[in-house]
Design a protein around this nucleic acid. Structure first.
Lengths: 329, 329
DNA sequence: ATGAAAGCGCTAACAT
DNA sequence: ATGTTAGCGCTTTCAT
């Protein structure tokens, strides 16, 4: 900038004026400055500018896995909103590891990001407290972070309820639930929705029809249930990895799956799903964030995004004859 | 920092020394400083630090779509390498729009990123010239950028060759090629591989068996071929979006597809693919980048990553009887 | 072992 | 309309 000023025979500040399109510069001078800029290949150092101005026009995104379709869709939406607000986006994957999440978040904060969108990897976000107090905005997405920050979730419980109710409506009375580790917020919520649906239909909860745990064990868990004395006639899976695990194990039961996935419509039968809205999640989270960055006050908000039931065949299958006939309880 | 210095009763520089773990500080003083840091909740401003030091410890990643599984897998690998080098990563999607790509790249350069990994959206990267001359490192991934920068590609031509040869080995003599717009580098390369495989097998190139264009038209293109007088007995698809379009259109021909995709193994029959290595692409690109950032000189390198043929059933089907019997030429 | 001063590249506030 | 000075938060250089 100094060089440009010298080359154009003006003071530093004039160059600054031109670069920032501030008023108070003769067209002629401006032209001389612009010529010098062009000739010297000058580019404003945005970092220095932002250091001076106090805002960084940068947000940080921490998700479980940048490579996962659900989260990367979310990331795409966050990116769009960020760009619309003239901000760039740091992104990083926590890999579901609370320590890595913390390191990433703190690294972003050290860069003085204006705000953070976080998919919490762990339950404890105490480390964020000082940062929030220091003025960083933060929004939790997909799961609550245990702090009084804005939070955007999917309607996990209501979605599971709708999916299970869909199966019950087809005449199923014994519906299995295959979910992830109940320590995971979404897994627990979906299980609750399943239970509520059964209860509302006047059905008791049979613990032998519920298996919670790592996706890679879901196939075996279902095999065991089906081999048991009083097997399920339909299955509700709690997330995509479990759904895929069940399908890979060769099972093709009447099925409703929580979370949509690529090509679900091409399988035979097509897989009926309770679709979430990853883009909506990202967009909403980012919009809340920028409201806060713009100075929005008020208590933390908690928004639940609706799910959508997409019938494709697997969820519309009736109970296999003989497995749960009339009189069966 | 000033506040910490005051609170600890030392000079600014001493705080700096402690924070940077530089030698020349008595353990006792260090302790006093650390206590003040803790008490005041001080966090070093990394941006200011990096402004002074001249490096930003930041790289930029520009891909087609952060939400696409292939590119987001690549991004994950780039991120890992970046973190291993103590750098953070800006990421952005070009959406295949050269102007957006340019804007993103320039925005990253204005933030003085140390380097860039770019999946080129357009053929013209002249705008990058001044930035490269200014010292930014850059690596092109997945497609060449038309500049003398390091480039990492998949073996598009060789991969297509292998896939087509696989079909020919099963007795197919009329293999259709459904590819994307040949203006896209990868599409053209894969077409070339297809042609080479036919030529090496002593087969002439039948233009009526080649359809290049947007994925959403691939289904109709294949339907037309199959309804023609001398239809193909097998199909090679040039990318995943085309593969899916063909399958969605209801076709289940003997098929080898370029690029792997989630659940290819669960379809009936399983889809035989020529798998690329998105993580390898990202890792290699990032490693080359950090070599350059570290000061590596020498001419631009061009690396091709091998593909892998994954037989799953669809590519092992013989010609349907009567469509291409002996004597047919 | 510790500190004072200069400066990274820029903008804000106040001259002229 | 243009220029000067101070300072964002830090590190570097050179004292002490």
């Amino acid at each position: 900038m100094k060089d440009v000023a010298t080359a154009a025979g003006v003071a530093l500040k004039t160059v600054s004026r031109v670069v920032n399109e501030e008023p108070g510069v003769t067209p002629a001078t401006a032209r001389r400055v612009l010529a010098a800029i062009e000739r010297l290949g000058y580019r404003r150092n945005e970092s220095a500018r932002l250091l001076r101005r106090g805002r960084t026009a940068t947000i940080g995104l921490v998700i479980e896995d940048v490579g996962d379709p659900f989260y990367s869709g979310m990331g795409r939406a966050v990116e769009q909103v960020a760009l619309a607000h003239g901000s760039l986006m740091f992104s990083g994957s926590s890999g579901e590891d609370p320590r890595r999440e913390r390191d990433l978040v703190l690294a972003f904060c050290a860069r003085r990001v204006d705000g953070l969108v976080i998919v919490p990897a762990g339950p404890d976000h105490g480390y964020l407290r000082p940062e929030l107090d220091a003025g960083v905005a933060a929004v939790f997405a997909d799961r609550p972070g245990g702090l009084d920050a804005d939070t955007v979730l999917c309607a996990n419980s209501a979605g599971a309820y709708a999916g299970v109710a869909h199966l019950l409506r087809r005449g199923h009375r014994r519906v299995a639930f295959l979910g992830d580790d109940p320590a995971i917020f979404t897994a627990a919520e979906r299980l609750a929705g399943y239970r509520r649906a059964l209860a509302d239909a006047g059905l008791g909860a049979d613990p032998s029809l519920v298996a919670m745990g790592p996706p890679e064990r879901a196939g075996a868990a279902l095999s065991a249930m089906l081999a048991g004395g009083d097997p399920p006639t339909a299955v509700f899976t709690g997330n995509s990895r479990i759904t895929v695990a069940v399908l890979r194990a060769g099972h093709r039961p009447p099925l409703v799956a929580f979370d949509d996935f690529e090509l679900a419509d091409l399988l035979v039968p097509g897989v009926t799903v309770v679709a979430q809205d990853p883009m909506g999640l990202g967009r909403t989270a980012a919009e809340l964030l920028f409201e806060r960055i713009a100075g929005g006050r008020g208590p933390a908000r908690r928004i639940e995004l609706p799910t959508r039931l997409v019938p494709r065949g697997s969820g519309e299958l009736p109970p296999a004859p003989g497995t749960a006939g009339p009189g069966h309880r």
